[in-house]
Design a protein around this nucleic acid. Structure first.
Length: 211
DNA sequence: ACATTAATTGTGT
DNA sequence: ACACAATTAATGT
């Protein structure tokens, strides 16, 4: 399919054309609607995902069903955790859910390593993915360890508005609570504060970031 | 247009 | 953390 080639090319302009051809030949395009579980804890991966467009959130989930948001993926990203899984044939420790309608290119894991050796651009792409995600993870951990919840909320909201490309965020306090894994009441109280300091304004199912 | 209900948000202990 | 009050959106009549 030529559509594959052209869109991959647009998003990963650095890839050499041989590599694009291989992606074109081996990759499968898959589109998802918004709010679809793309990956679940415990699932093992036969394919390595590249995000063409859209956005997904990646989070870890404990046995009680509590979530903790790790990071967002958007166009041009991929997931370091799935890289690890490919390499070690390990099972995924995280889940991913589409945040907007999303399309992915799925590449059979077998090609991962071949391409690493064959294509310098692929190699550096993969290394970059690792480094980017690692940084984001550090941020997340830093937030957990050192920042107060108010800071985390601010970060969460600004991040989300970046991903969704709007500052009108259709979320409930309960959803935020589960992603940042606190209780809803605490979120409500902090959100009230943020509203008072006119960082946001809110109404039912809606938070608006102020400029 | 009004009443009923369910979901979301606010507050006091 | 819990319980409950207040508010708002959705639905039926």
């Amino acid at each position: 399919m030529d559509a594959v080639d052209t869109s991959v090319k647009q998003i990963f302009p650095l890839f050499e054309s041989d590599l694009l051809d291989e992606i074109n030949a081996q990759g499968m395009i898959k589109s998802f609607a918004e709010n679809i579980q793309v990956m679940e804890v415990g699932e093992s991966l036969a394919h390595f995902p590249l995000v063409l467009n859209g956005a997904l959130k990646v989070f870890s989930e404990n046995k009680n069903g509590e979530e903790l948001l790790l990071y967002y993926l958007e166009s041009g990203d991929s997931c370091a955790v799935s890289l690890k899984c490919c390499a070690g044939a390990a099972k995924s420790q995280v889940s991913a859910i589409t945040e907007t309608p999303t399309t992915l290119v799925l590449i059979p894991t077998a090609f991962m390593e071949k391409w690493m050796a064959k294509y310098p651009t692929w190699r550096s792409f993969v290394l970059n993915i690792f480094s980017d995600r690692f940084d984001e993870l550090l941020d997340a951990v830093d937030g957990l360890a050192f920042q107060n919840l108010e800071q985390r909320i601010k970060l969460y909201l600004t991040d989300k508005s970046l991903i969704l490309k709007t500052n009108e965020l259709p979320i409930t306090h309960a959803e935020m609570a589960s992603e940042l894994n606190t209780s809803r009441v605490v979120i409500s109280r902090l959100m009230k504060k943020l509203e008072a300091s006119s960082f946001i304004s809110q109404s039912r199912n809606m938070v608006v970031l102020k400029a």
